[in-house]
Design a protein around this nucleic acid. Structure first.
Lengths: 198, 198
DNA sequence: AAATTCCGACCGACTGGTCAGTCATATATT
DNA sequence: AATATATGACTGACCAGTCGGTCGGAATTT
């Protein structure tokens, strides 16, 4: 009944995620977003100034989710080793479950590295990366302090961890081979951990 | 001008790589590709049937380069450990030098994971991945056989290696921080190797 | 409580601009 | 002069964003 602003805004974002993940940002039509959200095309523009505006909102929503996930793990009472394993395992599970999110992430990456492009998307992405990397470095430091992890260049290892998660996510998004992915995931995590354990 | 000597098809592909890496496949204009290649717009269609056709050619050219690179390393007389290190080090160096290629790879990924899309791009990408992974598995097996590497799930480790290279390439493409990347690269490679050495 | 006015969320037909691909013509090559 | 190659003006499809209009319900007046 109460079609509150927020409610409808959320519905548009969700619809847009589906449409853009199926067709890409450029080929995804606002008309389709509206249809999927069960509203008229004009109404979309009551809530968002432009297509790009919608895309920014999607981006923000995804980053917020990721940050929430990271903070949950950071504030858990687990050992650094367990934290890291959980981060990787759960993170990669998430990426299997939310294939839309993954596809949109690819879209974000593609957008953000075009040379001629308004800076704000790239800016956000870099900021998000820094934040995430800091979180991981915190875990690594804790692990070094209590002697679980070897001495290391934390920047390098944190980058490696993020890179391999991004990369595996990418592989899965393209291959869509769940069975293989689950197998690979386990060995990948183990191998990574071997590389940093004392 | 000696421009007419150079194969026109190649020039179009190169021009298209620049244009598409700056604006993306959808927003990159054929007119701009033609201008950059120093020919008229109509001429482009003497050599390619469509925009998509050009993109396929770009894709093929990139994959060919990668395969060449892999085969050079595979057929070198180095030890498995050295081969792997070189693969990672040189591969990541390439990705710093050829930022266009990188950006286009992002474009390819984004394209190939949209749900509604002609299969051929995805097909090619999967095929390329399998081939590359096989190459790495060959190196891993050789390393296990001569006792350099621990016993492992080769699929998992090969995926991990490719994932972390893709991921680092992605990070670099977005961040464009060469100095940081070089530092990170070294530690990342070392950490990865630690994870598989006996 | 009925009638009237007002409000703003909602809508989709329309516009203006964009661009892939075509084709009639021009130029070079044989 | 016949053939091959190059060209860019043109066209038709496409779509983001606009805008005038509708409608249900809230507020105000009678």
């Amino acid at each position: 009944m109460d079609t509150h602003k927020t409610d409808k805004k959320t519905r548009i974002i969700e619809a847009a995620m589906t449409v853009f993940s199926q067709h890409g940002l450029e080929k995804g039509k606002i008309a389709d977003v509206a249809k999927k959200a069960g509203i008229g095309k004009g109404t979309v523009y009551e809530y968002f100034r432009s297509k790009e505006d919608i895309f920014n909102a999607i981006e923000q929503s995804i980053f917020d989710q990721f940050k929430l996930f990271l903070n949950e793990i950071l504030s858990s009472p687990l050992s650094p080793t367990k934290k890291l394993k959980q981060l990787m395992d759960q993170g990669l599970n998430m990426c299997m479950e939310k294939s839309d999110t993954n596809t949109i992430m690819n879209e974000i990456w593609a957008q953000s590295c075009r040379s001629k492009h308004p800076r704000n998307i790239n800016q956000d992405l870099v900021g998000y990366y820094d934040e995430f990397q800091d979180g991981i470095k915190t875990i690594l430091q804790a692990g070094i302090d209590i002697g679980e992890f070897r001495k290391m260049n934390k920047d390098g290892v944190a980058s490696l961890l993020m890179a391999f998660m991004d990369g595996l996510a990418l592989q899965f998004t393209v291959m869509k081979d769940t069975k293989k992915f689950i197998k690979v995931k386990g060995e990948a995590i183990e191998s990574f951990m071997r590389g940093i354990l004392k």
